[in-house]
Write a protein that binds this DNA or RNA. Structure first.
Lengths: 188, 188
DNA sequence: ACTTTATTATATCACTCTGATATATTATAT
DNA sequence: ATATAATATATCAGAGTGATATAATAAAGT
């Protein structure tokens, strides 16, 4: 067997905020947790169907003028229960597959300049994502939404991970670029 | 279509070091790049078969006394060529799926103590991996293997990423645990 | 008026990758 | 003599990715 299906819990968690369609879920995920989690239609729709069969969500059809109809899913008591069970269960082994590092590991097979370019692009991407995260943080901080009293600011804790992560990536890129550039200068 | 098959390049890259069997490849990967890359038998064997059909590797059977026979794969000139082409190609979009953050994001649905435990375990795991990385670094530094002159120390650059990453994770865990503990004390 | 393009919405498919299990051989420990 | 561990390959169900197909309506360009 593969990993347990984590997508179902991601969807249930998002539906605990509010009832949504598959299309809404994708948009919501992309706009809130995309820096550490992603889902795609090819998985969302079949998983929603499965969750409905298991009675963890209920479906109703919403007819909209000016837009196609959509299937709105709501989480059930049973769904909320399996979601909180999952929250308490141990985290599965995290799998990292960092293609940038795989290329760098085999860097000796190619020109130093090729690797410099890869790392430079990686840095640019990290800087862009960091700016987006800071925008989100700003957005959360300026809107005075009533956070539940005495509950930790979970969204900000996640965001803080992103800030730490991308700052670290930028720092590593700078260090690495320095070493690569020095080696390249030495070659000439 | 899904992502392009990156496993084939990981295997070709490893075979550029020396000819190996599928079993050897798995061991080699687990012992060298497991902190940023993983492969498993269920993928290694079919990909090796495909690489052989495409003439990017050749197979010979090695009969060993005391051990089962094994299929030793060697990279061909053509294989080396597609490998270096891949090195020069842009890095695919990196996909992050951090289950620990997904749980934390939905933390408001459960007890603060549950989330404290998750983050504490995460910290312990990071500390253990960091210690393993430092052992590998020590190992690389003490063995005086002749690094190619004027070539950047690519293995150490990758390792350095791991050190930055796990140190960052530990720092974030400490910050997060402080905030969660404060919130919990406030609840009582 | 007509066509193109963008957005909303769902479904499906080929392919990648994961983790478990099955099978077989030999070495080592009990 | 038996159990266990290590070596070695193969296979399978299921998770997850990204592309494409389909269809409805809105907006924009010609």
């Amino acid at each position: 067997m593969a990993h347990i299906n984590t997508t179902q819990y991601a969807l249930l968690g998002m539906l605990s905020y509010m009832p949504m369609s598959g299309y809404d879920l994708k948009k919501f995920i992309d706009q809130s947790i995309s820096f550490f989690w992603s889902e795609n239609y090819g998985h969302i729709y079949p998983v929603l169907k499965k969750l409905e069969q298991e009675k963890f969500v209920t479906k109703r059809v919403e007819h909209n003028q000016g837009k196609p109809s959509k299937n709105i899913y709501s989480i059930t008591q049973e769904g909320l229960s399996v979601l909180t069970d999952w929250l308490a269960a141990p985290v599965q082994k995290e799998i990292y597959r960092l293609e940038i590092l795989l290329k760098l590991f085999f860097g000796y097979l190619t020109e130093t300049g090729t690797m410099i370019e890869k790392v430079a692009v990686h840095k640019k991407t990290a800087e862009k994502t960091l700016r987006e995260l800071l925008d989100i943080e700003n957005h959360i901080n300026t809107q005075h939404h009533d956070l539940p009293k005495n509950k930790p600011p979970y969204q900000l804790l996640c965001l803080n991970y992103g800030k730490h992560f991308y700052n670290m990536v930028i720092k590593w890129c700078d260090e690495t670029l320095g070493i690569l550039q020095a080696a390249k200068n030495n070659q000439q």
